[in-house]
């Protein structure tokens, strides 16, 4: 990669990275700084960029977690998002394998799967509400896990299908010839090779569910109360608790960041390299 050593290339790359960093992180930093602001430091002129040092305490974090129900919300969101991600990736990878390798149902079936998530959620929300009412699942984690699967499962299936299709089928075929069952071939040969896909699918199905608002609002009441609803509840008609909203936002980032840090080692080059000797 000789061209990368040219100075102008390095300069351009540096500028791009710096600009991207400012663009993507400024709002995050802003949110972080907001967590230390008092109610009167939100709309002022000139804006308070960095709050005074004596305000750098955890009061707003503690208030968000306790008075405003952040701990319960964190627990509910973790249960719902974790379960949705797990179910979507497990169920989804099997289906993706079947679609990619056996072309089950053909293109039309694959498209139907994708199309289930195209329907505007506003229209499906009330029918879903009625279903969960009849199943007595309103205000439970299950209602949200099932409802969110509409959007996460097709995503997981299609994403993983793309990754599996990119793999040469010869690997599994040789395993099958050696007497492995279809499941064994999938589990021992294909699954390890689509690591980046599985990681990406897990991460995004988790995040999609983590950030979802409308189902969380309608399908829950007070026993289950995910973060998005809890945070929206901090914006009253005449009282927006800016600092607590920001603090909840910062807290809400943590599981995602841990997930990325933990999962990223599986998105590394070379994981698939050695296996692909065909």
């Amino acid at each position: 990669m000789t061209h990368r050593n040219r100075p102008w290339v390095r300069l351009v790359v540096g500028i791009i990275l710096a600009a991207a960093l400012v663009f993507f992180l400024f709002p995050v930093v802003w949110m972080f700084l907001t967590t230390f602001k008092t109610q009167d430091q939100i709309f002022t002129t000139p804006p308070v960029l960095v709050p005074p040092a004596e305000q750098w305490n955890l009061n707003n974090y503690i208030a968000a977690l306790t008075q405003s129900g952040g701990l319960q919300a964190l627990r509910d969101s973790l249960i719902v998002s974790g379960s949705t991600a797990l179910i979507s990736v497990v169920v989804g990878s099997l289906a993706a394998y079947s679609l990619a390798r056996y072309r089950t149902g053909g293109d039309q079936f694959a498209f139907w799967i994708l199309s289930t998530r195209m329907f505007p959620p506003v229209a499906s929300a009330i029918p879903l509400f009625l279903i969960f009412r009849d199943l007595k699942l309103l205000d439970t984690h299950w209602a949200l896990i099932i409802a969110n699967s509409i959007f996460t499962l097709p995503f997981a299936i299609w994403l993983l299908k793309g990754f599996i299709e990119d793999l040469p089928p010869e690997l599994e075929e040789s395993a099958l010839i050696d007497g492995a069952s279809a499941f064994q071939a999938f589990w021992h040969v294909t699954r390890p090779l689509i690591g980046p896909g599985v990681v990406t699918a897990t991460l995004f199905t988790f995040v999609f569910t983590w950030n979802e608002f409308m189902f969380a609002l309608l399908l829950t009441k007070n026993r289950v109360r995910p973060l998005t609803v809890m945070i929206s509840s901090l914006a009253g008609g005449h009282e927006i608790l800016w600092a607590q909203i920001a603090a909840s936002g910062v807290i809400a980032i943590i599981p995602g960041v841990l997930l990325v840090v933990f999962l990223q080692r599986y998105i590394v080059r070379g994981l698939t390299m050695g296996a692909l000797k065909y």
Binding site: F129, L130, L217, L218, S232, G237
Partner: peptide, 19 residues
């Protein structure tokens, strides 16, 4: 107590009433 965000009081109540 059961609450909804300020903006969503009508959405939530109406849905519960209709159902």
């Amino acid at each position: 107590q059961v609450t909804a965000p300020f903006e969503n009081v009508y959405d939530v109540l109406k849905t519960e009433f209709v159902a």
